[in-house]
């Protein structure tokens, strides 16, 4: 995992630094040539890219120094900038994941149990819509109807709110983010459970006297949850990337807005830090899912210690 991270950091650094437009401050009419020279020297922009890379890596590893913002928040350490934005974005993303999983599981179970009935067809139809329409469309629609027309929610994020008020003002963006993951989980669980229901151990559960509901609840669902762990990883990265756009729509001061403006500025230490941060979160997700496998599937937990 550390190697993966190292590769990501290296490639990220090179790509961002080699992008055209890296002649920082070069065309600023308000500054004299001498001033520009001083600034470029201060941020090591006058050195070759490989040297800059070594300086960056040494700072990051030895002092936990992510560099300094060079144009958006001039002089502020990158980490201080991120520290203010990360909680806002992660709040959205994690709440979205937390509501997507149970809702998706629930509707997937219902669709599977009522397979080939009107309930199932309606669910499948909704699933197709929610997966294929991107989240910013829902965001715009929600913003227009729920916030602007009916005045149920604030149109844009209210930074001063806390607790329940905060959730209330973030509900629309979270909702917009969650449609697609809910649909994904539904589709996946419906397919898995429909297959599990036809398995022999479900038949055995019924022949030993369990009702259909007991058999489905005790044997069907848990077994179909095992492979679900697989879709959680792409789902969470999907939520995070959707969030980048949604945050702009609702003027949420999170990572999304920061990333776009840091690329436009350009403020490459900031861009790089955001990239590394997202890679880190994805890798942690993979780790958490791997560990979760061990909890739900005994074959992985005890695997190998086979007796007899």
């Amino acid at each position: 995992m550390l190697i993966t991270l190292f590769i990501i950091v290296t490639i990220g650094f090179m790509v961002i630094r080699l992008m055209p437009g890296n002649t920082m401050y070069a065309d600023d009419p308000d500054m004299s040539a001498a001033q520009i020279e001083v600034l470029r020297a201060k941020y090591h922009l006058d050195k070759p890219v490989p040297v800059q890379y070594v300086i960056f890596l040494r700072g990051l590893l030895l002092e936990g120094d992510w560099g300094t913002s060079i144009s958006l928040y001039v002089g502020v350490p990158v980490w201080d900038v991120l520290k203010a934005k990360i909680p806002v974005s992660m709040y959205n993303n994690i709440v979205s994941l937390m509501i997507s999983l149970p809702l998706g599981i629930l509707s997937g179970v219902i669709a599977a149990i009522r397979k080939n009935t009107i309930v199932d067809y309606a669910t499948s139809f909704a699933v197709v819509i929610f997966i294929s329409v991107p989240s910013f469309i829902f965001a715009t629609l929600l913003q227009y109807f729920a916030a602007f027309k009916w005045r149920l929610f604030p149109i844009i994020y209210d930074a001063s709110a806390t607790g329940a008020g905060k959730l209330h003002s973030l509900l629309l963006p979270i909702l917009a983010l969650s449609f697609s993951p809910i649909a994904r989980v539904t589709r996946y669980l419906r397919a898995e459970l429909a297959e599990t229901i036809n398995s022999d151990f479900m038949l055995l559960a019924r022949t030993k006297g369990l009702t259909e509901t007991q058999a489905t609840l005790r044997h069907g669902i848990r077994n179909s949850l095992v492979p679900l762990a697989n879709v959680v990883i792409p789902m969470f990265t999907h939520i995070m990337s959707g969030s980048l756009v949604i945050e702009r729509i609702f003027s949420i001061p999170g990572m999304g807005g920061l990333m776009v403006s840091s690329i436009n500025a350009p403020d490459y230490p900031l861009t790089l830090a955001i990239l590394i941060f997202y890679s880190l979160v994805s890798l942690v997700t993979v780790l958490v899912v791997d560990l979760a496998y061990g909890v739900i599937d005994p074959r992985i937990r005890i695997g190998g210690r086979n007796i007899e």
């Binding site: 398995s199 022999d200 151990f201 038949l203 055995l204 559960a205 022949t207 030993k208 005790r218 044997h219 848990r222 077994n223 095992v226 739900i296 599937d297 005994p298 074959r299």
Partner: peptide
């Protein structure tokens, strides 16, 4: 009336003791 299945591997729930 009880039933004993053909394939004991698939007849048992793999993740329940």
């Amino acid at each position: 009336i009880s039933l004993v299945f053909q394939d004991p591997l698939s007849a048992l729930n793999p993740i329940m003791i």
